[in-house]
Design a binder for these strands. Structure first.
Length: 186
DNA sequence: GGCCAGGACACCA
DNA sequence: TGGTGTCATGGC
């Protein structure tokens, strides 16, 4: 068992299973992935609750909302003007993906304005169950703290995790969630 | 009452 | 490629 695996086990015993991503649908994961950018999850929950209350948490409904309406609904998540515009763009991509009945590529998600690497990987992993390890600011601190890796670029970290762990979607999901939980405590 | 969150992008040198 | 400004609300 390598160092990654033993740390994982201790995180799991300390914090318990995180069961990410909390959502009622695949599309809700996509929405949450965008809204949570540099934003406390509590605020994202408020925005998603607003969308549900307005019965707007569905791709076609988001597209049909006036931009100002959408802005008001997602306001608690912050950066709401940017996010409203970008959520519509991402939703168009989501519809296209579902229409062709195929899995999304990382490249096409990254081509959507407002979707960077972490958001793309979160969607690939948590919405589409594809084995991409999500890297965030906590993950880099985590690596430094445990002297696991001292890289620079996002993809260096991602490839390091992916080559150090068994290629398991449930493991990727849980490990990233546990790192975030760890990050909140330090 | 300030600090910051489950980032991304534009612009500059 | 590296550094900095911008976007913005709400929790603690």
């Amino acid at each position: 068992m390598n160092k990654f695996h033993s740390i994982y086990k201790s995180l799991l015993s300390e914090f318990g299973p995180q069961q990410w991503w909390p959502a009622d649908s695949q599309y809700e994961v996509v929405v949450g992935a965008l809204l949570t950018q540099n934003t406390n999850w509590k605020n994202v929950e408020k925005a998603i609750a607003n969308l549900k209350k307005a019965k707007a948490l569905a791709p076609q409904k988001i597209l049909r909302l006036e931009k100002s309406e959408l802005e008001q609904l997602i306001k608690p998540s912050g950066f709401y003007r940017q996010k409203a515009a970008r959520l519509k763009l991402l939703t168009e991509k989501f519809i296209e993906i579902k229409r062709r009945n195929a899995l999304p590529s990382r490249e096409e998600l990254l081509s959507v304005k407002g979707v960077g690497k972490e958001t793309a990987d979160s969607i690939l992993l948590y919405a589409f169950d594809l084995p991409y390890f999500v890297i965030d600011s906590y993950t880099k601190r985590f690596c430094a703290h445990h002297k696991l890796f001292n890289g620079k670029e996002y993809d260096d970290y991602r490839e390091f995790f992916e080559s150090s762990l068994p290629r398991s979607v449930p493991l990727y999901k849980e490990y990233h969630a546990l790192i975030v939980e760890w990050g909140k405590t330090i």
